[in-house]
């Protein structure tokens, strides 16, 4: 296919799974936690670049977040992405998955013609896996989730999906939305040459709510159906007793206790 155009939606997420909450405010402690490119979004970028190398394509990365979220776009430029769009506006703050997908879909439509939209299956912060399908929903496009292989041929893609009990091969005509898992590829490292181009800012476009021609009433926290009432750290504590003694005694009293509660 000539002039293939691929959009990759990416997200900046807190770069640790040791995230903690502030018990006083019930909010996430973000201080000192670096932002990273969401791992499966990196796989989506790699998948786009592989298609670009094989078939020729223009790859545009799209992200929404605070101005710092532009960092992840510089990172994907260094991997070889051609253009980036940063969606940043106070009006976007607090958007849930439905509104986030709405904003992203508006931006994709504004960016012009496209053939394929790629997303990571889920982000490691919220872990919803909803934004990809919801972009497809707003754009009335077919979706293929859990992709672990994408083969492009004559305007169609064949995708291998990784499901719980089987692998499924599906075929769909472009344009379409595909969400990828980490099994699809091993993302490349940024190249030095690309890093230099990435830093001059010429690849980046920034849009706000006005650029998308969407009224503020359709954006952000107020428009979002879901609201986070509170966040807290899970309480795993249980009754628990430590069985004393040497190995022989421990084994004997464990067996006795398990018999006592009828599990053996």
């Amino acid at each position: 296919m000539k002039g293939l155009k691929i959009i990759v939606a990416v997200k900046q997420v807190p770069g640790t799974d040791e995230v903690r909450t502030d018990p006083k405010t019930n909010s996430l402690i973000r201080q000192g936690v670096p932002g990273i490119l969401n791992p499966e979004d990196r796989n989506a970028v790699e998948a786009a670049l592989c298609l670009k190398e094989k078939h020729g394509a223009a790859v545009t990365a799209l992200t929404m977040g605070p101005p710092e979220a532009g960092d992840v776009l510089e990172e994907v430029f260094a991997m070889g992405v051609d253009k980036g769009i940063l969606l940043t506006d106070m009006a976007f703050a607090g958007s849930d998955t439905l509104i986030t997908a709405f904003i992203l879909s508006r931006a994709i439509i504004k960016s012009g013609r496209f053939d394929l939209i790629l997303c990571g299956r889920h982000a490691i912060d919220g872990e919803t896996a909803q934004v990809g399908p919801q972009i497809a929903g707003f754009m009335d496009l077919p979706q293929v989730t859990y992709a672990e292989e994408i083969v492009l041929e004559k305007g169609f893609i064949t995708v291998r999906r990784d499901l719980e009990d089987c692998q499924e091969w599906v075929k769909v005509k472009l344009p379409a939305v595909v969400t990828v898992t980490s099994r699809i590829n091993r993302p490349r490292y940024p190249s030095l040459y690309n890093v230099q181009t990435a830093c001059d800012g010429s690849l980046l476009t920034t849009w706000g709510a006005e650029d998308l021609k969407v009224p503020a009433s359709m954006l952000g926290l107020d428009a979002s159906p879901t609201v986070i009432k509170k966040i807290f750290e899970p309480d795993h504590k249980k009754r628990g007793e430590i069985i004393p003694g040497d190995e022989k005694e421990m084994a004997a009293s464990l067996i006795e206790k398990l018999k006592g509660v009828n599990v053996i």
Binding site: D96, T97, L98, A101, G126, E127, T128, A129, Q130, V131, G132, P133, Q134, A136, G137, F138, Q143, T145, Y146, R161, L163, E164, S224, P225, T226
Partner: peptide
Amino acid sequence: AMGRDLAPRLANSLRTGLTA
């Protein structure tokens, strides 16, 4: 895999909230 493919699309179609 089915529920998480289907539910977000339905939430779109019904314009309502969904928790994963």
